[in-house]
Amino acid sequence: MRQMLLGLTTLLATAGTAAADVNIYTTREPGLIQPLIDSFAKATGVAVNTVFLKDGLAERVVTEGESSPADILMAVDAGNLVDLVDKGVTQPIDSAVLKEAIPAQLRDENDHWFGLSYRARVVYAAKDLDLAAITYEDLADPKWKGKVCIRSGQHPYNTALFADYIAHHGAEATETWLAGLKANLARKAAGGDRDVARDILGGICDIAVANSYYVGLMRSGAGGEEQVAWGEAIKVILPTFEDGGTQVNISGAAVAKHSPNKDEAVKFLEYLASGEAQEIYAKANYEYPVKAGVALDPIIASFGELTVDKTPLGEIVKHRKAASELVDKVGFDG
């Protein structure tokens, strides 16, 4: 077996002479980061090895301890990045390049993790629906009864949104709001963020909550003609909190505490924050780039001006567990 042979050769080779690679453990889907990896490898000649670990990235790095080959830990959702820091598997990186490229509220104050792109939790509405603006609070309004689609309340995208709601209004109000939202659902809270667009086209619901970049993926035609139809069936409204802006979440990365190739790892992070990579984030993944001055994809730009909610990511993370418990409590997924 290839990997076994690899393992054997590592065993025989002396530690110092092995060529420096960057080993990435990622919870981001490979399709999303592959273009970035390819262009980094081309620019620097450093080989990149990846393993996509949907869940259990933290557990794996923790149990691997100082033997772990991981250099870079990539994750979606600030909560996952904070978890990695809390579990002690990251290390601070003092890099002027990163500090300059990434705004302070999108990276860890202790320099452990760095946001590399962000996405907004937006509302998809049926194209012909007479609706120009909406608040998150409005989603629980009984006038939407039987008209809202959303994925599982326990999905990190949703728990982060609900946690932000707690940050704005407190747990009690959030529970009431969640119960109202639950009562408005047109179908079970399940599936993915694209399914809600398809469901709007299918007449199951009028409005839905989903991430911003899916619209780009659908409308661009990368997923085939059908998805173009799904994407065209909806319009995107950037919802806000009554007393704030639109909830966003980041994708980001950290350098592993026991990174065997720390220099290359930092180089890779710095590359991801560069204009070239940020453009890929914007163009290939339809995300909001963190670096100022990098242009948005036109599809995303068409949503209008994004006002990022001011709740610090760290605070949202703190309310995540409470949000998850509220989801259980109101039987959101039932």
């Binding site: 889907e29 399709g31 393993v51 670990l53 993915g192 399914d195 990368a222 997923g223």
Partner: peptide, 27 residues
């Protein structure tokens, strides 16, 4: 397979899941 695979290993199932996770089943 998702949790325990070594670096760079991709099976049909993990590929399928990776695509499904971001909603791009067709790929």
């Amino acid at each position: 397979t998702l949790l325990l695979r070594p670096l760079n290993m991709e099976t049909f199932a993990t590929h399928l899941y990776g695509e499904a996770a971001r909603g791009t089943y067709e790929e």
